[in-house]
Computed example of a mutant assay.
Amino acid sequence: MTEKTKKNSIAVVIPCYQVRDHIEGVLAAIPAEVDGVFCVDDACPDKSGDFIEEVSKGKKVTVLRHRNNKGVGGAMITGFDAASKAGYDIAVKIDGDGQMDPQLLYKFVDPIASGEADYTKGNRFWDSRSVAQMPKVRLFGNAILGFMTKFSSGYWRVMDPTNGFLAIHLSVFDLLDTSKIAPSYFFESDMLFRLNLVRAVVQDIPMQAKYGDEVSNLKIHKILLPFLLGHGKNAFKRFVYNYFLRDFSLASLEFVLGPILICFGSFFGAWHWYLSVVEGQPATSGQVMLAALPMIVGLQLILSALNFDINNEPRVPVHRFIKRSSRDF
């Protein structure tokens, strides 16, 4: 723990749903320096909230309860909101299934406390040994979801989007419209999209996950299509907001002209190919060039715009300015 970290109050938020067999060990492993713990009983059928209150008497644990199940995202929003209203500076989300080592907590908190990031998240892909331990289905699913998240969120340098070990400066959380954040398993990916809209700095934290006898509720084959639709929707909204409403640059024109040229070249070429095959009208060299050239130029424009987008990732932490503003005014 750094000196700057000591000056920040830290809360841990744990979503609790069918984690009764593991939650006591998770609570016991949380560092003593943590100022408060919020456990969110997400309408757990095992009544994990009651169990936590029994085993955590005398500790800094607050149990929050949902009458109806809201999903991991809904539980996290409840926990973050409670921590923010209680006056904490930084909140760390740890799952209650024992897959995450609470002793790694300060690796996530230190970059935020030192002003290097607004939001940190775990990345299990840094170490090849960690990748080798990961179930193959999860590895395949995370690879697909990882690229979709990069495209929709604008954080091209982050990986492992479904990793639930994360931390956020609560002044940045307060900037987010929590009513629009996905309450389901799309929560972590949707959070990145929302963070980009407020230009928050996100940093990956290398870590190793533990896989024991816990049962994951995340089924790749069930969430792949909803995730694809969600990422497509977020990508469209991000490009419109960042490149046409909040700012307008050369990349904005490239994002418009590139697809138009590709579509024109594709349709023009397909039509003359049809005339050549069905009607017997041979395509001239000029027609071939008129089909190929717009597609080549359009592809180059899109690649140039994406390169600009990759280099347009937020680099200055937002919470530094929020804190400075509150002191000055």
Rank of each mutant, 00 (worst) to 15 (best):
S189C: 09
S189E: 07
D190Q: 05
D190W: 02
D190C: 08
M191K: 09
L192P: 03
L192E: 08
L192H: 07
F193K: 03
F193C: 09
F193H: 11
R194Y: 09
N196K: 03
N196H: 06
N196C: 05
L197K: 07
L197D: 07
V198P: 10
V198M: 08
R199N: 04
A200E: 09
A200I: 12
A200T: 12
A200Y: 02
V201E: 00
V201D: 00
V201A: 00
V201W: 00
V202R: 00
V202W: 00
V202C: 02
V202N: 03
Q203S: 11
Q203L: 12
I205K: 09
P206C: 11
P206R: 13
Q208N: 11
Q208C: 07
Q208L: 09
Q208V: 08
A209D: 07
A209F: 10
A209W: 10
A209S: 08
K210R: 15
Y211H: 12
Y211F: 13
G212A: 02
G212I: 00
G212R: 04
D213S: 07
D213G: 04
E214M: 11
E214A: 10
E214I: 00
V215W: 03
V215Y: 03
V215T: 04
S216N: 13
N217T: 14
N217Y: 03
N217C: 05
N217H: 12
N217F: 02
N217E: 10
L218C: 05
L218D: 09
K219A: 12
K219G: 12
I220S: 01
H221N: 15
H221C: 10
H221Q: 15
H221L: 15
K222P: 09
K222M: 13
K222H: 14
K222A: 12
I223H: 07
I223W: 02
L224A: 12
L225R: 10
L225I: 15
L225F: 11
L225V: 14
P226D: 13
P226F: 05
P226Q: 12
F227V: 13
F227P: 06
F227R: 14
L228V: 13
L228W: 15
L229W: 15
G230T: 06
H231G: 01
G232K: 15
K233V: 11
K233H: 13
K233D: 11
K233S: 10
A235D: 00
A235Q: 04
A235I: 01
A235F: 05
A235V: 02
F236I: 15
F236C: 07
K237L: 07
K237F: 02
R238F: 01
R238D: 03
R238G: 01
F239A: 01
F239Y: 06
F239V: 11
F239W: 08
V240M: 07
V240Y: 06
V240G: 00
Y241Q: 10
